[in-house]
């Protein structure tokens, strides 16, 4: 069966401080693809350029050089407001630092992407409740972020990433600030989204151990892809009988 491409990156370069004496290149010609429904991890040490790469994948930033197609959309040619719409509808971000909006309760946080999408109030509240229920945060939905634990915040953030039923979830070190038990819980949620809803997920992590839990591992070192290996997820899945 012919697999459909979700991400297609060709010869992606990214430099900072362009045109100044400080100019330096972080990504040196990245090539890889991700198929629809895949659970891929990008692994590398701190400073290897993972977040820079994620910002490009997430259409938050443009590459200095190279071609990038997301779900059939040529990012190079898209205008700023088109990128806004793209982030809104096709991408769900999960950050290491949760990035929930302060003084805004869990429900409103989850509603936010739907509000920017122009969904009616009743509709988005219903959906936000449903999503919070999926991540086990139903009883906390009226709490503000400062009343939630790290794991709870990250679960709200995942519900928010799912708000507009995105084509892809981009998670940058989602368990990086959590203890291992809570991290486990978050990983389970990603697996559930992948297995039950067929979501395409790109997990960015510095932990080789965590990357083993995915279907495919892309290793990044100093802004260059060192290689791709298969992950252990199919084996784990079979063992756990999912």
């Amino acid at each position: 069966m012919a697999e459909e491409l979700m991400l297609d990156l060709r010869n992606i370069h990214k430099s900072f401080f362009i045109g100044t004496p400080n100019e330096f290149e972080v990504l040196h010609g990245i090539n890889f693809t991700v198929n629809k429904g895949e659970f891929v991890s990008i692994v590398g040490q701190s400073g290897s350029g993972k977040s820079t790469l994620m910002n490009i994948i997430g259409a938050l930033d443009r590459p200095t050089e190279g071609e990038y197609t997301l779900d059939g959309v040529d990012i190079e040619k898209a205008k700023d407001h088109e990128l806004s719409a793209l982030r809104n509808k096709k991408i769900g971000f999960v950050f290491q630092t949760y990035n929930l909006i302060a003084r805004t309760n869990a429900l409103k946080n989850v509603e936010l992407p739907m509000m920017y999408a122009g969904m009616s109030r009743g509709e988005r509240t219903d959906r936000a409740r449903m999503l919070l229920e999926q991540v086990g945060m139903k009883d906390r939905m009226h709490h503000n972020p400062d009343e939630l634990s790290g794991g709870q915040k990250q679960r709200v953030a995942i519900a928010r990433a799912m708000a507009n039923d995105p084509a892809i979830i981009l998670a940058d070190e989602p368990t990086g600030a959590l203890d291992s038990a809570t991290g486990r819980l978050i990983m389970d949620i990603f697996h559930k989204l992948h297995e039950e809803q067929g979501k395409t997920i790109v997990l960015i992590t510095h932990s080789p151990e965590l990357s083993q839990e995915t279907e495919r591992i892309i290793t990044l070192k100093d802004g260059t892809i060192m290689g791709e290996t298969a992950g252990n997820w199919p084996a784990i899945k079979a063992k756990e009988g999912m």
């Binding site: 806004s84 809104n88 909006i101 936010l112 920017y116």
Partner: peptide
């Protein structure tokens, strides 16, 4: 600033 960045990541346009 961080909130503004987050909102933009979630799809807020400059106008909003």
């Amino acid at each position: 600033t961080k909130e503004i960045g987050t909102r933009k990541a979630l799809g807020a346009t400059n106008g909003s």
